[in-house]
């Protein structure tokens, strides 16, 4: 199992660094009535990391993020966010967090700039020499790509523009730790790419640690330094997109053509296979393509099974594939 091996390595080496962890979750459990939604979730987020919580709908992603935000009480387990138990976090603690909520139609009569300016004003007393709070509203509006809409009424924004505003609201206090729950829901591909750029900029320039949830693997791969896959109330995989991809699929797919004819071959040792291929045919080989059976294939089959109610089987299979 990935979790065990990965955690085994990282915790033994990084035990002192736990102090500096932005988020530290141990044995987190959540139970609604008689249903266990989270069954012992464990992970750590280091400063400056972009971490994605990936999982099918209903896997408990939002529950985790809401527990971390201090919006929801957990049933059991130890949770530290910026060194504080979120259930006991005060306003000082809250000022260091950014929360991007799913919005709907709130503040419809407000203008974009007006609302950001207003919400920003709460952060003034929490400004420090290293981190000036709040964010400059003009800059922030530009950064999320709402420059032309600063004076527009919020009710008149499109869905995608509204979502950008949500992100801007989450950033207005210049957070050290930013939570994004399904940030790109309802984005068109262009807005999605802009948003990805913004996330990279935040993590590079502002030293913002980011935890986001998504059910879109592609997004997780593009954004995250590290991906946690959550299913059936547990974290079933933890690693970079690259590491996960390698774990999940030992077989790679090699495609080539020779004399106008196309070939496909699956092999665990793509490099060796291609070396032999060239040794044998040399310059006759064209259109060479080597592709690992993607993490996506494996993830998609997990999601499919999960949605058809075979959660445990799905998880077992996934773990089998990634062993």
């Amino acid at each position: 199992m990935i979790v065990a091996s990965e955690l085994g390595q990282s915790t033994s080496g990084a035990e002192p660094a736990r102090e500096a962890a932005m988020i530290d979750v141990r044995g987190l459990r959540m139970r609604y009535g008689s249903v266990d939604v989270l069954k012992g979730v464990e992970f750590t987020v280091r400063r400056g990391e972009v971490l994605t919580l990936l999982g099918p709908n209903g896997a408990g992603k939002t529950t985790i993020i809401e527990i971390l935000e201090g919006f929801r009480m957990r049933s059991a387990g130890e949770v530290r966010v910026l060194g504080v138990d979120p259930a006991k976090g005060d306003e000082q603690w809250r000022a260091r967090l950014g929360v991007v909520l799913q919005s709907w139609r709130d503040h419809g009569k407000w203008r974009v700039g007006e609302l950001l300016h207003h919400l920003g004003s709460y952060y003034v007393p929490y400004s420090t020499p290293e981190r000036r709070r709040p964010h400059d509203v003009g800059e922030l509006i530009e950064a999320v790509g709402l420059g032309e809409h600063a004076d527009q009424k919020i009710a008149s924004l499109s869905g995608g523009q509204r979502r950008r505003l949500d992100v801007a609201v989450g950033l207005v206090g210049r957070p050290e730790l930013l939570f994004l729950d399904e940030p790109t829901a309802g984005f068109d591909p262009h807005a999605r790419r802009d948003f990805h750029d913004l996330v990279h900029r935040l993590s590079d320039l502002e030293d913002t640690t980011i935890l986001l949830t998504t059910h879109d693997l592609d997004e997780a791969e593009k954004l995250a330094d590290r991906i946690l896959i959550l299913a059936d109330g547990r974290i079933i995989a933890d690693g970079s997109a690259d590491v996960l991809a390698r774990r999940v699929s030992r077989d790679a797919e090699v495609r080539w053509s020779r004399d106008g004819e196309h070939f496909v071959h699956a092999t665990p040792d793509a490099t060796g296979f291609v070396r032999e291929l060239f040794a044998q045919y040399g310059e006759e080989i064209a259109d060479l393509e080597v592709r690992r059976t993607s993490l996506e294939d494996t993830y998609m089959s997990l999601v499919r099974q999960f949605e058809s109610g075979q959660a445990e089987a799905a998880v077992r299979e996934f773990e089998e594939a990634s062993r």
Binding site: E69, Q92, R94, A95, L101, D106, Y122, Y123
Partner: peptide, 19 residues
């Protein structure tokens, strides 16, 4: 405003509920 999320937004910022 509870239904449309205004209150939740207030809750997400420091002393937002008071304001």
């Amino acid at each position: 405003e509870r239904e449309d999320g205004t209150l939740l937004r207030a809750k997400a910022i420091p002393n937002g509920m008071l304001g």
